[in-house]
Amino acid sequence: MRLKDVIVGAVMAGAGIAYLRMAAVLPERDGVDAGTVPTILAWMMIGLGLIELVSALRRPPATQAETRAATSGLVTVGLTLLLIAGFIAALRPLGFPIATAIYLFLQFLVLTPKSASRSVPLYAGLAAVSSVIIFATFRYAFDLLLPAGPLVAWLN
């Protein structure tokens, strides 16, 4: 039994069940209605999930090396997701230039390989310059009203 594939199969079938429940509450009409295709798709998802589940039960378990490879780097992934979510949440209150500069600076630090040196002043400069160039290009060249935040009085 390969645990990862069992989980994948179960999630596939679970997604189908959740979709089927949502499709079941759609208003019904005579013949083919808005719920017909989603219902067919949901049953297909459940069936495919079960097929994957059964074949995962037959597969040999993953080796330790495979398990280690699958879980390595998840901390960096988690930090990256948090940073992206924080960046999006900060876009309105801080404005695009400030939120972007902070996000880029922190993301450069998080993604820098352990073997490479982290140059904080260089990263800060790169983050600020990239943020300004992107904002100016889209705001003034493409007329895209990116949120300016507290800098609105100076930038618009």
């Binding site: 390595s72 780097g73 998840l74 960096t76 992934v77 993604l111 820098t112 073997s115």
Partner: peptide, 14 residues
């Protein structure tokens, strides 16, 4: 975006 997240996984130990 998925590619950025994927790269983040191996970024510290390329």
């Amino acid at each position: 975006v998925a590619e950025v997240i994927k790269v983040a996984e191996s970024a510290r130990h390329p």
